Computed example of a mutant assay.
Amino acid sequence: MNETITQICDFLHAINLPFSLTSIENETFLPGVNLNQGALQIDIDKLKYAGDILHEAGHIAVCEPIYRAQLQGDVYKNGLRNGRQKQAMHGEEIAAIAWSVAAVKRLNLPMKTIFHDDGYKGASHSLINAFDNGGIFGQPLLDVWEMTSSEHGFPIMKKWIREHRWIHELPTT
């Protein structure tokens, strides 16, 4: 295992994000990483980019806790089959991107770790520019879910794993 992968795995262990180093036989959305019942599987031999670990870990971290165990394979295909709302899943996608940015900043890794040339359908450079220049992309959701706070400033995280569902409770009278 290279140093970056070891550093990422140590981080995932420290924040209690479930993962295992294992052989993955099925085809996966990203080479060498798979979501299996809310846990991340990492196949070091098939992994193409270390940053893909952080992006997929971000999906687990920002998912509503009641749906986390349903995370399986391709988040979108399988999530829609399990009754997840498309809007919630798109919000979680951008939050997972922001989460992975906070993680690379915490680990002092280059942004290219997650925004490599083969990722994000050619938009990696634009995403790096957006985050490096104070653009807002997913951070407000992390704030609403009380994972970060506007008072401390992104990318500082208060919690690395979402603990509750964001709903407004109606006052009882």
Score class of each variant (00 low, 15 high):
Asn2Gln: 09
Ile5Gln: 15
Thr6Glu: 15
Gln7Glu: 14
Ile8Glu: 03
Leu12Ala: 01
Ala14Gly: 05
Ala14Trp: 03
Asn16Asp: 13
Thr22Val: 05
Thr22Arg: 09
Ser23Trp: 05
Ser23Met: 07
Leu30Asp: 04
Gly38Glu: 07
Ala39Ser: 14
Ala39Pro: 00
Ile42Lys: 03
Lys46Thr: 06
Leu47Asn: 08
Leu54His: 12
Tyr67Val: 03
Tyr67Asp: 14
Ala69Phe: 13
Gln70Gly: 07
Gln70Cys: 07
Leu71Ser: 10
Tyr76Asn: 08
Leu80His: 01
Arg84Phe: 15
Gln85Cys: 12
Gln85Phe: 09
Gln87Tyr: 12
Met89Gly: 02
His90Tyr: 13
Gly91Glu: 09
Ile97Gly: 02
Trp99Arg: 04
Ala103Cys: 09
Val104Thr: 14
Leu107Trp: 02
Met111Ser: 07
Met111His: 11
Asp118His: 11
Gly122Thr: 12
His125Cys: 00
Ser126Pro: 00
Ser126Glu: 15
Asn129His: 12
Ala130Val: 06
Ala130Ser: 14
Phe131Thr: 11
Gly134Trp: 11
Gly135Ala: 13
Pro140Leu: 01
Asp143Glu: 15
Asp143His: 12
Val144Arg: 08
Val144Tyr: 03
Glu146Val: 04
Met147Glu: 01
Gly153Ala: 02
Lys158Gln: 09
Ile167His: 08
Ile167Ser: 09
Pro171Gly: 10
Thr173Gly: 15
Thr173Arg: 14
